[in-house]
Structures are given as structure tokens and as C-alpha cells.
């Protein structure tokens, strides 16, 4: 079941993981420092950046989450491999 995906899959996914990691760190920090305007600005910046990266990835490899557009009109991509543990 282990799938070999094109190199762009891994590269783009890692960029998304990196951006989303920044978000996770900022979210936890802001939960205990809710008035840090600089951190809020960084959070908003990275939230936008992460959305951009995901849109590019999803146009090639299908939706990362429900609510994203299924870009192939006649095939439901969500249910298609690889799942995260398969790559």
C-alpha cells in the first residue's frame, strides 16, 4: 500500500507542514499571551500563506480537508490514496 508519489508531492507537503507548524506554535503562544499584537500579525500572515500553499497542493493532489473544492468534476478525490500513513 506504500505509495510513491511525485517529488513535488513531498516538497509541497513539507512546505505546508512547515507553515502549519508555525501556526500551531503561534496558536498555543497566543492562548496564554492574547494581547501580543506582533504574534497576532504573524499568525494572520502565516494563516494566509498556508491557505495559498494548500490551494496549490490541492489543485494537483486533491483536497486536504473537507470544505476544499473537489477540482475534478467527475471523481471524488477525498477517498483516494495516499492517506498520510501511506507515504
Amino acid at each position: 500500500m506504500a505509495k510513491t508519489m511525485p517529488i513535488e508531492y513531498y516538497q509541497q507537503l513539507e512546505e505546508i507542514q512547515t507553515a502549519d507548524f508555525v501556526l500551531v506554535e503561534l496558536v498555543l503562544y497566543l492562548d496564554t499571551h492574547p494581547t501580543d499584537a506582533q504574534a497576532i500579525e504573524q499568525y494572520n500572515q502565516y494563516a494566509q500563506y498556508s491557505k495559498q500553499l494548500k490551494r496549490t497542493f490541492e489543485s494537483q493532489f486533491g483536497p486536504l480537508e473537507l470544505g476544499s473544492i473537489n477540482q475534478i468534476p467527475d471523481y471524488w478525490q477525498w477517498n483516494r490514496s495516499p492517506w498520510p500513513w501511506e507515504v
Binding site: Q17, F21, L64, E65, P84
Partner: peptide, 12 residues
């Protein structure tokens, strides 16, 4: 909750 089809950090 909403599922994201990716790991938080790569696992090799």
C-alpha cells in the same frame, strides 16, 4: 473536529 489529510510532521 475537522480532519486534515496530512501528518503534523513527516514520519519515515
Amino acid at each position: 473536529w475537522k480532519y486534515e489529510k496530512k501528518l503534523q510532521y513527516p514520519v519515515k
